[in-house]
Structures are given as structure tokens and as C-alpha cells.
Design a protein around this nucleic acid. Structure first.
Lengths: 173, 173
DNA sequence: TATTGTTATACTCTATAACTATA
DNA sequence: TATAGTTATAGAGTATAACAATA
């Protein structure tokens, strides 16, 4: 439990961090908006999956996910195969072209961050990564709880967790 | 200098942190979108200022700032007085009504974060705040450097880099 | 001529709701 | 009936360019 001023400061930091995100977005190729990069990255990390799973990992509505997926599919970066187990569903999978793009993206991100953060130690970057992951988990748990038992209170207790990887999951929606 | 995998992970964390921002945005009053809250917060922190200064603190284009400012001015949360030293400019200042709204916002942010982060220590929240502030500074400093040294700028694509905009934008604070 | 700020236009991202196909 | 996914529509946020008024 932290002091009130710490919470207010965190709210300010979160509101301002968008500028960093935008700056990172500027290094992306013309055809690949940030949302597309996010889709490809998650498919790389977690492997083949369905729309619904991807939407949950992205922490956005499936309608939005659907359009992001259409964008990357139109450019040949992913394939959408019918799911043999459920004909309503489609399985998303990276193509070789998508993997090639991901290599390019990783290189650009790395070069850009290496330049911006040249005076950061490995430990500092690691600490920031850990805290951001934990922040997302804290919000994600809260949302999952609110979603599954919307009429219950908001105490943190039962953690019936059906997720496979809580560290890479994002909250909100 | 950190390892490449750390940079890639940071890029991913930044891309995913938007979900937390959106979740925080949901607690705001109907009339007050996140951008308005940002404007009010900066005017509270830094006091009376001009459009250009505010745009720099927000790290967004002045055209965008102009519309955010119009929104909060229409609702009586700030005043726009002509600058006696430069008739092209207007000085922005919080009104009592704006300060009252800020108190409300601070309370909502605090309550929400206290609920989401109930298992975070004060030290953890403080560390995250420090690292986020430092991250924004690193990007802001770098952007300033890049602007003064434009021919060493390798981060952009073949994109139209038509920024004759001389205002050096810093991630907000 | 250059700068401050506004407005018009376009693009990205997201949410809600209506719709289809299948379970 | 319920669920997986798509599409239509609306709203917030941002960038670029053209413009007005002033320096």
C-alpha cells in the first residue's frame, strides 16, 4: 500500500508515457502500424492461436482485433486457417514473411532503444520491464475478476486462473 | 547499455501498457477525456503558461493542444487571457472550477490505483515512478539531440520528415 | 519573413451494437 | 440459446498543411 501522492504521480506518469510510445511507433515501416506489430509479436511469442485468445492477450475488443488481424493477413504476414475443431473459429499463424518482418522490427526497436537508453544499465532496463509487467498483471487480475464476478466485491482472493501465461497478458478491454 | 533481449522486451511492454492507460481513463468523468485531465494537471504543476509551452510539455503538436485547450476552456476549467507581451499568444490559467475538478480527479485516480495495486509497496510504486520519469527524460533528451543534429538521425523510415517545427517536444511531465 | 495559434483533413486506435455462421 | 468472428458506426487522439494575426 503506497502513499496517495505516489498514486497521483503514477497516474501522471502513465498519462505522459504515451509520448514515448508514439516515438517508438515512428520507427515502424510504412505498412506496419503499431497495432500490427503487436499482433505479430504476440503470435511469435505464443504461437498459433484463435482470434479470441489474441484479443485477450492484446486486451482489446475482438472487433478491433479482427481488423488488426485483417490488416496483417492482407499483407501476407499471417495465415488464417479454419479450426478443424470448431468451424466458427480460425487459427492464426505467422508466415515466413511475417517472421522476416518481425526480425526487421526487432532490429529497429533495438537500435532505437539502444540509442535512447545508452546510459541505462542492463539492470535498470530489466527492473523497468519487471515493474511494467507486474503493473499489467495487477490491472489484468482486477479486470478478470471484475469480468467473471461483476456483482461481487473487488477483494483479491480466489485466483482461479485459467490463463496460460499471465506475464504476457495485458489488461483492460 | 543493456542486452538486445531487454530492449525487445521493453518495446513489448510499452506496446502493451496502453491497456493500463485505457483502464485508468475509464474512471474519468464523462466530460473529461484523458487529454483534458493531462492539460489540467500540467497547468496545476507548472502554473500559467502559453499554448506553445503546454504543447511542449504534452509532447504533442500545437494543433492538437489547441483543441484540447478549447475543450477545457469551453467547460470553464481554464481561462485564456491575452498575453500583454505578445498579442499573438494567450496565457492559460486554471480557474477555481478547474482546481475543483483536479481534486476530484486526484481522488478517483488514488482510489482506483489503491484498489489495483493493493499489494504493491510504497517503494515499488516509487521505483516505477522514477524509472518512468527517467524513461521519458531519456527520450526527450535524445529527441532534442536528434533535432539539433538532424543528419545523424537514423531512426526514421523513408518517411517524409518535414518537421520544420522548431519546437523541441519533450515527453510531458 | 518568421512565429503563435487555429482550423480543416486524414489516419490510427478503440468500443458498442448488429449481424453471420456454427455449436 | 450461446459463442466466434465480422462489419458498421461513433468517438478520442494525433499529425500535416493551410491559414490568420502579430512580431
Amino acid at each position: 500500500m503506497a502513499a496517495q501522492s505516489q498514486y497521483e504521480e503514477l497516474a501522471r506518469q502513465l498519462s505522459a508515457i504515451g509520448a514515448v510510445k508514439r516515438e517508438m511507433g515512428r520507427i515502424l515501416p510504412q505498412d506496419c502500424p503499431p497495432a500490427s506489430a503487436g499482433v505479430l509479436t504476440l503470435l511469435d511469442r505464443h504461437g498459433e492461436m484463435r482470434m479470441g485468445q489474441l484479443a485477450e492477450l492484446l486486451a482489446i475488443d475482438m472487433s478491433v482485433t479482427s481488423r488488426h488481424v485483417a490488416h496483417v493477413a492482407e499483407r501476407g504476414w499471417i495465415e488464417r486457417q479454419p479450426d478443424p475443431a470448431d468451424k466458427r473459429s480460425r487459427l492464426l499463424r505467422l508466415t515466413p514473411s511475417g517472421r522476416e518482418l518481425l526480425r526487421e522490427l526487432a532490429e529497429r526497436y533495438t537500435q532505437s532503444l539502444a540509442r535512447y537508453l545508452d546510459d541505462w544499465s542492463d539492470a535498470d532496463v530489466g527492473r523497468l520491464n519487471e515493474l511494467l509487467a507486474r503493473l499489467r498483471t495487477s490491472f489484468g487480475d482486477c479486470r478478470t475478476r471484475a469480468h467473471h464476478d461483476a456483482h461481487h466485491d473487488t477483494r483479491r482472493d480466489a485466483r482461479h486462473d485459467t490463463r496460460h501465461d499471465s506475464t504476457t497478458r495485458t489488461p483492460a478491454g
